[in-house]
């Protein structure tokens, strides 16, 4: 029997070939991360230093998760509104939304954090106090409107607001792209049935658009988790800040920061697996195109 074909059926391929072919498809990267994780976890259990670092970092995990969740939720609302503004035919709404998006995209997030925390929040509080002084004769002094001080707004709150505003700008563009990816005929069909613009958006365009932008929004959530580390710059005690404090006090920079990086990596990998699962689910249940 002579074999002349170049590609052999699976059964006739050599063992090495089959092994290499299968091995190449393995997620080796995940294995490496898992091994490092096991190593670090082993250290956390056996070494006093690592277990001290771990319990210290754990103190900040609540703040990290809180900041991420709240800022991301606010960013979704801001982004949806600004994204609707970006596709609006009303020139006033369109220009306000575009101005916001352009400013946000042109300033680094760290700088936005500083500006919002140290400029915008104090200015807003001044405004509230001035307003309070105006209406004081009506509602009577003293009242909270005249007596709010900048230090009454904790830095955690300022950071959450700043991250929400920053990410809202990016999500606005995600929502805009999603809305514009829905074919024009959908809006026309809805309008031809007598629906108003708002009804057509709510019942026809947005349900389809949001489905399409779920994967990029999931990635934004991961990015938000990572960027929440910026709040440490303002002294908010998230895991990064706890690590900085511990390292500065103990001089154990290497062990502390490796552990810190691993904390973020563990969380982001879990989340990205979640996002991938969501994408697969949407693809397999996806029902046609608009």
């Amino acid at each position: 029997m002579s074999i002349s074909t170049e590609r052999l059926p699976a059964g006739e391929r050599s063992l090495t070939e089959r092994f290499v072919g299968r091995a190449a498809r393995w997620p080796w990267w995940l294995l490496v991360i898992a091994l490092v994780g096991v190593l670090i976890a082993w250290n956390a259990l056996t070494s006093e230093l690592y277990s001290a670092i771990f319990s210290r970092l754990t103190l900040g995990i609540g703040v990290t998760i809180f900041t991420t969740l709240v800022a991301y939720s606010l960013a979704l609302v801001i982004g949806l509104l600004a994204g609707l503004g970006r596709v609006s035919g009303n020139p006033v709404v369109f220009n306000i939304a575009t101005l916001y998006v352009q400013v946000i995209r042109g300033v680094p997030i760290l700088v936005q954090l500083l500006v919002i925390a140290f400029v915008i929040v104090p200015v807003l509080i001044d405004g509230v106090n001035n307003l309070g002084a105006l209406v004081a004769p009506l509602i009577g002094e003293p009242n909270f409107l005249t007596q709010t001080r900048p230090q009454d707004v904790p830095f955690l709150t300022r950071c959450v607001i700043a991250l929400a505003i920053a990410y809202g700008g990016f999500q606005a563009e995600t929502f805009r792209a999603g809305i514009q990816s829905i074919s024009k005929g959908q809006m026309e069909a809805a309008r031809s049935l007598g629906m108003s613009y708002v009804q057509a958006m709510r019942y026809i365009i947005l349900p389809q658009a949001i489905r399409r932008v779920l994967p990029p929004l999931g990635n934004d959530f991961i990015a938000m988790l990572k960027d929440s580390s910026l709040v440490s710059v303002l002294g908010v005690r998230d895991i990064t800040q706890e690590a900085r404090l511990y390292a500065a006090a103990s001089f154990r920079y290497m062990e502390t920061y490796v552990s810190l990086a691993f904390f973020y990596l563990a969380m982001t990998i879990l989340l990205s697996l979640g996002v991938r699962w969501l994408e697969n689910r949407l693809n397999s249940h996806g029902r046609g195109q608009g």
Binding site: E188, S192, Q289
Partner: peptide, 23 residues
């Protein structure tokens, strides 16, 4: 706009590309 929506409700339209709502 309000008049237009009222008139459109009285005028059915069928498109070349159907434009059913896929969701």
């Amino acid at each position: 706009a309000k008049d237009i929506n009222a008139v459109r409700a009285e005028v059915g339209m069928v498109f070349q590309q159907f434009n059913l709502f896929p969701h």
